[in-house]
Design a binder for these strands. Structure first.
Length: 603
DNA sequence: AAAAAAG
């Protein structure tokens, strides 16, 4: 466990009467993320009793009593023996830990099913797109997985899941433009686990030499950009891998590497990792990727922004991972800029392209309020808002986004001094502090969280009723992600944003988003947009693309995409045809087209 | 310009 010297431990707000911020001596609590049950935990009732079902019989058993590797009994871990899947017996204690019980935050947060999922437009393209499924049934899913899905109370597949299951079952690759909240995690975990349960570990998984034998040989690898996200994915993986032969392990930076190495030694079939730590462990010779059958890249465009590309390419192309044709690759990305198209070309093999509409912005259960606030008035405006909403949203959580780590510190200190129960999360805090802040927020102990982009995407925190964009992001897709932290699970939410002339680069996109979601567009926004478009035409060519460029042109390697507005105006049509007015999506083409024509009127 | 990620 990462030791945090007291002087580095910044002051989180602690309610006066309890003051038990870390009674468990460390990570997480219930419903939190990270190593609960993962590395670093020692036991939790784990390593006693040898009477487990179907474990270690026969000499053809995966992890079956061969020297060293994970021969220890672990509750809830099945085996692959004599070419058959032998699920472990049920374990009540573990089920309680994994799936929670009524009343737990965890219980209500899992298994959410938005009714409006059915209205999300989806478009699949590519050769021979398999027919989507409509329910979680066996077949096509493996029966054990269906059982686990029921335990986790997922009743109905989301659009991503409907497609990803048959796509992977048919041996195909997937490039999905989908955002958090679209059921992405299940979208890759379900098919990957289901197929793994059917087919078992990779044959020949045994290494030729002793050096190789000491390494972990995962069958599936999931890469994601932030530590919190991989932790969250790992926790989901534990739910759906329950009783199966698949043992999930998570590795990420900022916490003790030796504990993670120990976990790898115990057996690792599904590895969830951030790129930095994975490269570290590859260099140390602790992991071999040559048995990888399934590779998942989550939030791929996020990883671009963060300068991950070299690391990713080293993992995928610079080590011993099988080439695209010999594995199945699933890539998820909110947007589809040229760099991602290149990655898709390099990493995927004859893939199906799936585009899933926005969940956040089109849903009208988020009320978006845009306020004109100059930078030096932001603090006092924030206080006004927090005070005003204190009573009305007394049970909810408020998430405040800022642009810089420094501002996150300043603002949370300021709020704490003003007696607001706040804490902060950003990349300069220690991993322990990050996890504790998030847990404290989740649990409602500090219902105000000031965050940088580290929390913008991917994190699923139930009960966020208010998102405040103290600083507006430069990328409108980030804005959509941020406000998508609220209004989840059919609840209503409020998203407030402070805007001034420093944000003029996004106002045009912001107006589009607001109109798509049937929200009021304040006059000052239109004014700023107009000032902006007079200066220098349209910015960087409008919003990011989420289209299958193989189908809609672009073609060549250089220049790929940008055939101007003419081409883009076709986009809306494609969506309309298959899905009627699913809401919002068909604005894509038309609004881009009208933007270019109306800008000339403004002159 | 800043964010994230290996230490």
């Amino acid at each position: 466990m990462a030791y945090v010297p007291p002087h580095r431990s910044r002051g989180d707000y602690v309610p006066r009467d309890t003051g038990n911020s870390s009674s468990r001596g460390g990570f997480s609590g219930r419903g939190g993320f990270s190593s609960r049950g993962g590395f670093n935990r020692g036991s939790g009732g784990g390593n006693r009793a040898f009477g487990g079902s179907g474990f270690g019989r026969g000499n053809d058993s995966h992890r079956g009593g061969r020297g060293g590797h994970g021969s220890r009994f672990q509750p809830g871990l099945g085996s692959w023996t004599d070419g058959e899947h032998k699920p472990a017996e049920h374990n009540e204690r573990l089920e309680l830990e994994l799936y929670g019980k009524p009343g737990d935050a965890q219980f209500q947060s899992s298994g959410i099913n938005f009714d409006n999922y059915d209205e999300i437009p989806v478009e699949a393209s590519g050769e021979d797109v398999p027919e989507p499924i409509s329910e979680f049934t066996s077949p096509p899913l493996d029966p054990l997985l269906v059982e686990n899905i029921k335990l986790a109370r997922f009743n109905k597949p989301t659009p991503v899941q409907k497609y990803s299951v048959p796509i992977v079952a048919n041996g195909r690759d997937l490039m999905a433009c989908a955002q958090t909240g679209s059921g992405k995690t299940g979208g890759f975990l379900f098919p990957v686990l289901s197929e793994s349960y059917k087919h078992g570990p990779v044959q020949n998984s045994q290494a030729e030499n002793t050096f190789d034998r000491r390494k972990a040989h995962p069958t599936a690898l999931v890469l994601a950009p932030t530590r919190e996200l991989v932790s969250q994915i790992y926790e989901e993986a534990r739910k759906f891998a329950y009783r199966s032969w698949v043992r999930p392990v998570v590795v990420y930076g900022g916490s003790e590497v030796y504990a993670q190495m120990e976990q790898l030694k115990q057996g690792c079939d599904l590895l969830v990792a951030t790129p930095g730590r994975l490269n570290d462990l590859l260099e140390r010779g602790k992991i071999s990727l040559k048995n990888i059958k399934y590779l998942v890249l989550d939030e791929a465009d996020r990883m671009l922004d963060m300068g991950f590309e070299i690391q990713i390419r080293n993992i995928i192309q610079g080590c011993d991972m099988p080439p695209p044709a010999e594995r199945q690759t699933l890539m998820f990305s909110a947007t589809f800029p040229k760099e991602i198209q290149m990655m898709a070309k390099d990493f995927l093999h004859n893939y199906i392209f799936l585009s899933v509409g926005r969940v956040g912005s089109t849903s009208e259960n988020i009320t978006q309020r845009i306020l004109y606030v100059e930078d030096d008035e932001k603090k006092s405006s924030l206080l006004d808002i927090l005070t005003a909403t204190e009573e009305t949203m007394s049970n909810g959580l408020t998430l405040i986004f800022v642009e810089t780590k420094k501002m996150a510190d300043i603002l949370s200190d300021f709020l704490i001094n003003q007696d607001f129960p706040a804490t902060s999360i950003h990349g300069d805090r220690s991993q322990y502090e990050r996890e504790r802040a998030l847990e404290s927020f989740r649990s409602g102990r500090t219902p105000i969280l000031v965050a940088t982009a580290v929390a913008a995407r991917g994190l699923d925190i139930p009960n966020v009723t208010h998102v405040i964009n103290y600083d507006l992001p430069n990328d409108i897709d980030d804005y959509v992600h941020r406000i998508g932290r609220t209004g989840r699970a059919g609840n209503t939410g409020v998203a407030t944003a402070f805007v001034n002339r420093g944000n003029k680069n996004v106002v045009k996109d912001l107006i589009e988003i607001l109109s798509e979601a049937n929200q009021e567009v304040p006059d000052f926004l239109t004014v700023i947009a107009r000032e902006n478009s007079m200066g220098r035409g349209r910015g960087r060519g409008g919003r990011n693309q989420t289209r299958d460029f193989r189908k809609y042109g672009g073609g060549g390697s250089s220049g790929g995409y940008g055939n101007g507005y003419g081409g883009r105006s076709n986009y809306g049509g494609g969506y309309n045809n298959s899905y009627g007015s699913g809401g919002g999506y068909n604005n894509y083409g038309s609004s881009a087209a009208s933007a270019s024509s109306s800008s000339s009127q403004w002159w």
